[in-house]
Write a protein that binds this DNA or RNA. Structure first.
Lengths: 174, 174
DNA sequence: AGCATAAATAATAA
DNA sequence: TTATTATTTATGCT
């Protein structure tokens, strides 16, 4: 990590202070790094990714970049706080549209479905997109959820022997 | 969700206020719900799970439970902030031991390793614990990482057709 | 009353 | 920056 060092007359302590402050204020507004990045991309210059915000907060950037980004963030955050004062609805609008995106309901599978998925993936570990669509429809689950890799992993999991799975951590080096 | 309602002379507005405040102060200290839960379990009464902290912050509990939990959290948080004043080292000690658990470095595979993993999982989608150990040793990667389901998923992924994979979101119901 | 784990967020290799 | 790993939060279940 390029620690922010004292070059080119940049007030590093000030930047450090702001970065820390920025994170807390962002969280106080209930905003994610992603939201900030997207909002900035919309209102300010070219493009600010979630990663960019993350790196600024951790000051995992060059002093020059930090110096350049600071005023942009400062201005934007103040404005965001201003809108938040007038009600969270206003903030969300300022941030970028979708007012109240709710967390997706977590899916749970019936034992039957799990069994079917298990046996399916056992036969075919590499289903194509179409095959996934097929099985999702058959089982009547949301395609993304039912047959995402994440869930294939879960379906497959019982095949592992728990004890063995945990007993060898770190035994193999890296 | 049992919204906090106005029963039994409990000051709901105050609790709501505190819950919101608690979250912000927790984040300012850089603590996770898990850390708070564990610390409370250690210093205070019986057991406070991460879920419990989460549910308090979202007030996804009965007013009675909230009322009971509030003073405990209030006291603990104040103390935590006190220690934090004296330096973050003190806070981490107060919270519970492990001073600076670093985030695990994310692993990356050489193209060779990916190819080998791909062909391996294509032949055998359900390796046993022992087989996993074996291949991890062979490739000289950390067992947990190298052959976790997460990574098997990655090894397998190229088989999906991107276009199809995305085009059918929500087409299948839930 | 909390465990298991799905969903969402943050951090990082490339 | 993008793609994706690692960690944290939230919730279905019992």
């Amino acid at each position: 990590q390029p620690a922010v060092s004292s070059e080119e007359g940049i007030n590093l302590e000030e930047i450090r202070e702001f970065a820390k402050n920025f994170k807390i204020r962002r969280l106080s507004l209930g905003l994610t790094q992603t939201q900030v990045g997207q909002a900035l991309t919309a209102t300010e210059g070219p493009a600010y990714s979630q990663s960019a915000i993350c790196r600024f907060e951790k000051l995992d950037i060059t002093p020059k970049s930090a110096q350049k980004l600071k005023p942009v963030l400062e201005k934007w955050l103040a404005e965001a706080e201003h809108w938040n004062q007038k009600g969270q609805q206003n903030l969300m609008e300022f941030v970028g549209g979708e007012p109240s995106k709710k967390r997706k309901r977590r899916t749970s599978f019936t034992p039957q479905a799990i069994e079917i998925l298990n046996s399916y993936f056992e036969k075919n570990a590499l289903p194509t997109g179409q095959e996934i669509t097929e099985i999702a429809r058959e089982l009547n689950y949301d395609r993304e959820v039912c047959c995402s890799e994440q869930h294939r992993h879960d379906a497959v999991k019982p095949a592992f022997e728990e004890a063995d799975f945990h007993s060898l951590n770190g035994a193999v080096c890296g």
